[in-house]
Amino acid sequence: MFVRAVYVTGDPAQTEAAVRALNSEGRSLLEERPEYRGACVFVDRELGKLLALSWWGSEGARRNSDQVMRERRGPMLEPFAGTVAVENYEVAAFHAVQPPRVGGGARMTRMEFDPADADLFVETFHASAIPRLEALPGFARCALFLDRDSGRGSVGVLFTDRSAMAASRGGQAAARRQDAVKARVRVVALEEFEVVHADVHAD
């Protein structure tokens, strides 16, 4: 699968309007496109941040949806959007044990790596990160996103509730340090969000 990630910042007071637009008009637009596999919307209401992910069965389907979404994205996110950044990734790993819940927690870790180490990153994630995450109370699912050419990646972990996410922070800090060394990656950002919507059909 492939993912388009739209990262939006703006006035926290306008966040709810953007969330409603993404969950109604945005979802309707996506569902009309071929090979659409689902969407996620994560929010930080205090700071005024939105992360919206759309999932696609092929890179071509993701690319073909770009024009329609580019034209509609700006008007749909007004008046909230102050900045909008769009990135595209390959889904290098996806592992789910239970459905995420509205109001649950989402942790996103952004990383950089030498493109030559992309396969090592994927192997380390499967062998080390997934088993550790599975053991966490409240773990729902995780995914690894890669842009192999640029050497950028992101790990997303969803929890059934935000208290479970908070309880995992200490242990995950140690695991993150160990796995970053094994995979030869650099952690460049760590963020947490509330789950507004998360519906992905991997098969």
Results as ranks from 00 to 15, higher is better:
G48V: 03
A189I: 05
Q178K: 06
K182C: 04
A175L: 02
S128R: 11
A167N: 06
L30M: 15
A92R: 06
K49T: 05
R110A: 12
D11L: 09
R186V: 09
E194N: 07
A13V: 05
A18H: 11
A164M: 03
E46W: 02
A92L: 12
L77A: 11
A143N: 09
P34Q: 14
E192S: 15
K182I: 06
H201K: 13
A61I: 04
G60A: 13
V8N: 13
V86H: 07
Y7P: 00
D66L: 11
Q178W: 03
L158D: 04
D117R: 11
H197C: 13
L30S: 13
G138T: 02
A61V: 05
G170R: 05
L158H: 03
A5W: 03
G57I: 01
R20G: 07
E134A: 10
P79F: 06
R37E: 10
M165V: 00
V86R: 08
L30H: 09
A52R: 03
P137F: 10
S28C: 08
Q98W: 01
L144Y: 04
V8W: 10
R72T: 08
R20W: 01
D44S: 13
E87T: 10
G10A: 12
Y36P: 02
A167C: 05
G38M: 14
F113K: 11
H126M: 11
L158P: 01
T160E: 10
V157W: 04
G82S: 14
V187Y: 09
L136D: 07
F2G: 08
R132P: 03
A92E: 14
R20A: 12
P99D: 15
M165C: 04
D66Q: 14
G170P: 00
L158W: 02
D117N: 13
G103S: 13
L29W: 07
D11R: 06
H197I: 05
A81T: 03
D147K: 01
A135N: 09
R73D: 07
R62F: 07
M76D: 13
R107I: 07
A81H: 07
P115Y: 09
D149H: 05
G104H: 06
V155Y: 03
L158F: 03
T124K: 09
F125V: 08
R176K: 02
V195W: 10
P137R: 08
Q14W: 07
L50Y: 04
V157A: 04
V84E: 13
V155L: 04
M76W: 03
A198H: 09
D114P: 01
R176A: 08
G103W: 12
V122S: 15
F121A: 15
H201P: 01
E31L: 12
